[in-house]
Simulated assay, not measured.
Amino acid sequence: MKILVTGSAGFIGFHLVKSLIRRGDEVIGIDNINDYYDVNLKFDRLAETGIDRSEISYGKEIRSIKYVNYKFIKLDLTDQDGLKTMFEAYKFDVVCNLAAQAGVRYSLENPSAYIESNIKGFLNILECCRNQHIEHLIYASSSSVYGLNRVMPFSVNHNVDHPVSLYAASKKSNELMAHAYSYLFGLPTTALRFFTVYGPWGRPDMALFLFSKAILENKPIRIFNNGMMKRDFTYVDDIVQGILKVIDKSPSGNLKWDGLNPDPSSSKAPYRVLNIGRGHSVKLLDFVSAIEKNLGTTAEKVYCPLQEGDVVDTWADISKMKDEFNYLPRVDIEEGIAAFLDWYRVYYSYCNQEVVA
């Protein structure tokens, strides 16, 4: 298939592009390479897929020097005309929209960035998909949409009308917007609610990255909500394998959907919502202990109150992914943390907890 991956210089997008390339799809990646975090990490991800940093300029197609079936274009989702031109030129079969303004805490500081990228940008994607009759739009939602819900595990059948951050609200909005387009225009859409993704080439603002960096630099780590938190930590390879399964099976509409007893995860339109996580909740302090064990040291911990916008626990009910897609996450936190730290120490040249010049 010919597949567009937005956010291809991002964490999950980078890993998805590599997997799609390996299985033989024709892949076009786009990213605006914004400076929400270190752009050098984004350029290095692109380099891993054969995209030469020196060749990148806005709107220019770059052919991979490693893979004949991969091209990259620096492009912003808010560029309506640029997106329209690209969609018309490439005639995609499938779109995987992973581009977004990420970060729960940053949404407290810069809310307008989330409206521009996650709302206006997503609308542009929907319009392009509608006008070009895309066979399947897969897009990133988030476990953060569950908000104040405390019924565990989080099910796609649960109500998600009480977000606690604008980031979460923007992702919930994406699901509502997608349903409208699925209903009005017959556009097949699938929302994937990701649960705390981690692994090599991860985002520097995520917990594993922050903890590892601080411990290796002999600095204290901050533990929020005094350690009374749980997360469904999901290794990136498991996430990508789930996405690949979903790409190949677009929704056709739930013939049994009942407006008198509406299922929020499906519709009579070609629309669905799926949780994609490990399916196992881990205490934050146990996660930290696994990092300490791997590094052979004990971190200095500073206990802090719960941050605004954070939820206390997450735990994914992945039964629909298992039943419909034979999804089976395999990587536990010990294995996943070890793989991340192996990458981290090489990438940043850490050895024996000291920076090697």
Rank of each mutant, 00 (worst) to 15 (best):
Q80L: 08
K120T: 13
R63G: 05
L260A: 12
D286M: 05
E334V: 13
E88K: 15
A99Q: 01
T78I: 14
I3N: 03
L306M: 15
R63Q: 15
Y106M: 09
L341Q: 10
S112T: 12
P153E: 12
E116A: 14
I73P: 12
D237Q: 04
P305I: 11
Y303M: 11
F87C: 04
N254K: 14
K66W: 02
Y167P: 07
V95Y: 02
G242C: 00
R63A: 13
F11I: 10
A269I: 04
N294I: 01
L295T: 11
K320F: 10
D342G: 02
K256F: 11
S250Q: 11
N226Y: 15
P111Y: 09
F92H: 14
N226M: 11
Y167W: 07
I62P: 00
L210E: 14
N118I: 09
W201M: 00
Y303W: 05
L77N: 08
L4T: 04
I247Y: 03
S267G: 11
F211S: 09
V156W: 05
Y327I: 13
V246M: 03
L137T: 04
T314L: 02
I119M: 09
D313G: 01
T6M: 04
E175W: 05
G10F: 01
P329L: 08
V312A: 10
N294K: 11
A207P: 07
E127S: 11
G24F: 02
I28V: 13
N352V: 08
K249R: 15
E127F: 07
W201K: 05
K245F: 01
N34T: 14
T190N: 12
L210V: 15
V356N: 04
L16C: 02
E109K: 14
V17M: 04
H162Q: 14
F195A: 11
N326F: 06
C129S: 13
I138T: 13
K91S: 10
H162Y: 03
I239K: 02
M1T: 13
D81F: 07
N40V: 09
D248E: 15
T297H: 03
L274D: 06
M228Q: 12
K60V: 01
Y183Q: 14
R150T: 15
K74N: 13
N174T: 04
R53M: 05
